[in-house]
Computed example of a mutant assay.
Amino acid sequence: MNNSLLIATGAALVLWGCGGSQKGDTAETTMVTPQLTQVWKTDTVFTGSESTLYDPSADVIYVSSGNTNAGDKDNDGFISVMNTDGTIRDLKWVEGNLHAPKGMALLDGKLYVTDIDEVKIIDVASATIEKTIAVEGAVFLNDVATDGQQVYFSDTRAGNIYALAADGSYTIISENAGVNGLECHDGHLFALDGEGLKKFSKDGEYTQEVINTDVTGGDGLVIINDSTFVASRWHGEIFFIRGNETTVLLDTQADESNTADIGFVPDQKLVIVPTFLKNEVAAYELAY
């Protein structure tokens, strides 16, 4: 791992000169050492809280739970709705016909959720599962992402990334061992897998580029901009990636508190962390 930012933890700011000031024709711009500060944490009201997703149109956070036995079809899964201050609006907003829901993505008023070997499509307005798509050969479906037109989802144990069409058909677009976290930004798909963080581009076929090898086996992914990312590992680590620098933001492994599929509230710079086996959701303010 690149340790240059870790070594600098004793200094809060890094300063450099750039043009435009009245004194010596230079001005100072500051770069803050990235850090997380806990803002709130819920009670242990979830069961295997695995994924969080912020909905800017409603200013709420969705939470997928029921992952104590993450591969069992036991019908104990549910989706919750939370406010951004940590209060719970509806603990079991959608339940029934959900087993171990994991990743989520919103597109055109629908919430797409992976559930072991199926993708469930929830109509947000009516809070009902309106369609279930069985995925042939699926082993452990995990994260979901959308670029506003296309929905993508991953199968961690099979090592596949799928593209889902509007008619419910799907195709495997890439095979990547241990692939989990997905996110889209500026027309590109990004993925966390056993090799690190990858960027996918489509020009007829999908091509991939490895852009970070420090965070292998990652779970959740937040994209701040083209070169700035926040990534989590399930075991209890959250990383900040800026260019070629990687910083450990949070390590809760000693507390056996997981950091699963994280979400992000941009206006408040809140990283939303589902703690999985701790059955909580925590929020941390990100400074960077």
Rank of each mutant, 00 (worst) to 15 (best):
4 S>K: 12
13 L>V: 14
18 C>R: 11
19 G>C: 09
22 Q>H: 08
25 D>F: 10
26 T>E: 11
26 T>Q: 12
27 A>R: 12
29 T>G: 05
30 T>V: 15
41 K>H: 05
45 V>L: 14
47 T>V: 14
51 S>K: 04
52 T>W: 06
53 L>K: 09
56 P>L: 02
60 V>W: 07
63 V>Y: 08
64 S>I: 13
64 S>T: 14
66 G>W: 03
68 T>I: 12
79 I>F: 01
79 I>Y: 02
83 N>F: 00
83 N>V: 03
84 T>R: 05
86 G>L: 08
89 R>E: 09
97 N>Y: 10
99 H>W: 08
104 M>P: 06
115 D>V: 06
116 I>K: 06
118 E>K: 14
119 V>I: 15
123 D>W: 03
125 A>E: 12
125 A>S: 14
127 A>L: 05
131 K>M: 09
134 A>R: 13
137 G>S: 11
142 N>D: 06
150 Q>K: 14
157 R>C: 02
158 A>W: 06
159 G>N: 04
160 N>T: 11
164 L>F: 08
164 L>W: 11
164 L>Q: 09
166 A>M: 05
168 G>W: 09
170 Y>K: 11
175 E>P: 03
177 A>V: 14
184 C>M: 01
190 F>K: 04
193 D>N: 15
194 G>L: 07
194 G>Y: 05
204 G>H: 05
206 Y>Q: 03
213 T>Q: 11
216 T>H: 03
217 G>Y: 09
218 G>V: 09
218 G>S: 10
232 S>W: 04
233 R>E: 11
240 F>T: 01
246 T>N: 03
261 D>S: 07
265 V>A: 07
267 D>G: 04
268 Q>R: 12
274 P>D: 09
278 K>F: 00
281 V>F: 02
285 E>P: 04
286 L>E: 01
287 A>E: 12
288 Y>D: 04
288 Y>R: 00
